[in-house]
């Protein structure tokens, strides 16, 4: 059987032991869930965040119970100096990043016809420019010199479809993330770096509280719009992020995986 020589065991394919992962916006929400998933799969995890909506210390102490090594650094990804400082700190602590999860994101729901420019800029600066800066610095410092790495960008189904709710800056930033994902997948393939994206639909979190919360006027409408009749559970992002981070996806690059219960197929 000629095929046998290619096979490696399925269990080892998803294992991240010995790998180091950096998750931006990793102190709360889906970022924390993904950091948990990576730690459970055996990776050392560095989380960074602005420290506004989830305490970095609290998140770090929870992750320490799971993974082999945890770092927590304060960083606003939209500020270039802070990102450069973060990467320098990781370098100094010998935290050689193999896996980057670009999860940090903000949103501002507003009717587009009256959306203020400063709110638009705030969203674009974090979700798109911040992602670019972090990716550039991490790739340059850790991944390109070692010719390896897996970058996972968190986009959104809002980057792929329109919606009734006024999320134009968010949608534009997330569609931009898909553009970066595809460009870097090709540009950096020769460096052995894979670049993919995950596109969640609605997951309850601090960021989505105005839409998914129990008292939200949008809640019933959004649930009705979901084929499974429910929102995503944060744990449901663990599998996809570990899949894309691991050797199990070693031939997958430039792709977007919606985790949306069928939302965009409708």
């Amino acid at each position: 059987m000629i095929l046998v020589r290619f096979l490696s065991n399925i269990k080892e394919l998803f294992d991240l032991s010995g790998k180091k992962a950096c998750v931006t916006g990793g102190a709360s929400g889906i970022g924390f869930a993904m950091a948990e998933g990576l730690a459970e799969a055996g990776a050392a995890v560095a989380i960074c965040g602005r420290g506004r909506h989830g305490s970095l210390e609290e998140a770090s102490s929870q992750l320490s119970k799971i993974g082999p090594e945890v770092l927590a650094e304060k960083c606003d990804v939209s500020i270039e100096e802070e990102v450069i400082h973060l990467v320098q700190t990781l370098h100094d602590k010998d935290f050689i990043v193999d896996i980057l999860v670009n999860n940090a994101g903000v949103s501002w729901g507003h009717d587009s016809e009256t959306m203020p420019l400063d709110r638009w800029n705030m969203v674009i600066e974090t979700n798109l420019t911040g992602l670019f800066i972090v990716t550039r610095e991490i790739a340059k410092e850790f991944m390109i010199p070692r010719a390896r790495g897996s970058i996972i960008n968190i986009t959104s189904v809002s980057g792929m479809t329109g919606g009734e709710i006024g999320l134009s800056a968010y949608s534009a930033s997330k569609a931009g993330v898909i553009g970066i994902t595809k460009q870097l997948a090709i540009e950096w393939a020769s460096y052995g770096i894979r670049v993919n994206a995950i596109a969640p639909s609605w997951f309850p979190s601090y960021m989505t509280r105005h839409f998914t919360g129990e008292d939200s006027p949008y809640r019933e409408f959004l649930l009705k719009d979901s084929p499974f009749g429910r929102f995503g559970k944060p744990g449901e992002l663990k599998g996809p992020v570990v899949f894309l981070a691991s050797q199990a996806s070693s031939y997958i690059t430039g792709t977007v995986i919606p985790v949306d219960g069928g939302y965009i197929s409708k």
Partner: peptide
């Protein structure tokens, strides 16, 4: 490699992809 295929199949067959529906993995 054949391993690339079987890993993708096992991911989509399992609860690791429990909220992925109607999609294609390239």
């Amino acid at each position: 490699t054949p391993t690339d295929l079987k890993a993708a199949v096992c991911f989509l067959a399992s609860d690791a992809s429990s909220n992925i529906n109607g999609q294609y993995l390239v």
